[in-house]
Amino acid sequence: MPRIYCFLPLSEGALVVLDAAASRHVQVLRAQPGDALTLFTGAGGQWQGTIERMGRSEVTVRIGGFEPLEREAARPVHLACGMPANERMDWLVEKATELGAVRVQPLHTAHSVLRLSAERAAKKQQHWQQVAVAACEQCGRNRVPTIEPVRTLSAWLGSAEAQAPAAALRCVLSLAEGARPWGELLRSATPTQPVWLLSGPEGGLSAEEDAQARAYGFVPVTLGPRVLRAETAPLAALALATLG
């Protein structure tokens, strides 16, 4: 059954006209009046619906019953990452959503290849948020992760978003000697303990940035002796944290 994101408030029995993006999605699927679909608002749970009318540019749906279904990971992970170049950030956001990240913070760092002006960064944030929505439609999540505005690492470290609760794990992926194995640290934590995970871009964080992260309480962790790509490392760490 098709799953469609709808940002409108929903209630049983209501007749709702889907927004342009959602309507196009339904039309691309070649759905017809009478077909069933599932709607979710991103705030948790999902609604059953039936298509009442297929117009040229809009679709009308009759809302059925609500299902308080959750598919979130037991361990909430907030991922901050130096943006990889080209389309790899799209891929990273998509897979991070599938793996259960609750927030993704794109970062400009010293070694970042991708540099975005303020206007372009805002457009990219909106694009990445839509990537996350599409990934939720595909994977079954009913809560859409937040894709934060692009920031510099220094600005993010000093922001409220980086100030994790006292009980949370704050970790930075690091190649430095003495970094603790990521799997070992997770096994010593509780299954629901929140994680703030920081990962660098191509070339990793600079020595100064690594030191700055540690000064803010981020513990260096390692995924092993191999050097993973900028889009692979955070996803591998995320998978261990949410699927284990």
Rank of each mutant, 00 (worst) to 15 (best):
M1E: 10
R3W: 05
Y5K: 04
F7V: 10
P9K: 12
P9A: 11
L10C: 00
A14I: 01
A14D: 13
V16G: 01
V17D: 14
D19P: 06
A20V: 13
A20I: 05
A20R: 14
A22C: 08
S23V: 02
Q27V: 01
Q27T: 00
L29Y: 01
A31M: 15
Q32P: 03
P33G: 12
P33Q: 05
P33T: 07
G34Y: 03
D35H: 15
D35V: 07
T38K: 14
T41Y: 02
A43F: 05
G44D: 10
G44E: 10
W47R: 04
Q48T: 14
I51M: 04
I51H: 02
I51Q: 02
E52Y: 00
V59P: 01
V59Q: 03
T60D: 06
V61M: 02
E67T: 11
P68R: 13
R71F: 09
E72Y: 03
E72N: 13
A73M: 05
H78T: 11
A80S: 05
C81S: 15
G82C: 08
P84M: 10
N86W: 12
R88S: 13
L92W: 13
K95Y: 07
T97D: 04
L99F: 09
L99N: 03
G100T: 05
H108N: 08
T109H: 07
A110E: 15
A110P: 00
A110R: 13
S112Y: 02
L114N: 02
L114Y: 00
S117F: 07
S117W: 09
R120V: 06
R120F: 02
A121Q: 06
A122F: 05
Q126D: 14
W128M: 07
A134F: 00
A135T: 03
C139G: 03
N142Y: 04
R143A: 14
V144C: 11
P145W: 06
T146K: 13
I147W: 08
I147E: 08
E148T: 10
P149S: 04
V150Y: 05
T152A: 11
T152M: 09
L153F: 05
A155G: 07
W156E: 00
L157A: 01
G158H: 09
A160P: 02
E161G: 10
A167C: 09
L169Y: 08
C171T: 10
C171W: 12
S174D: 13
L175A: 12
A176F: 00
E177D: 13
E177I: 02
A179L: 05
R180L: 14
W182I: 05
S188M: 10
S188H: 11
A189G: 07
T190F: 00
W196P: 02
W196R: 12
W196L: 09
L197E: 04
S199A: 15
G204P: 03
G204M: 03
G204I: 04
S206T: 12
D210Q: 14
R214T: 12
R214C: 14
R214K: 11
A215Q: 14
Y216E: 06
P220H: 10
V221W: 02
T222N: 01
R229F: 02
A233Y: 10
L235F: 08
L238M: 05
L240M: 15
T242F: 04
G244L: 15
G244A: 15
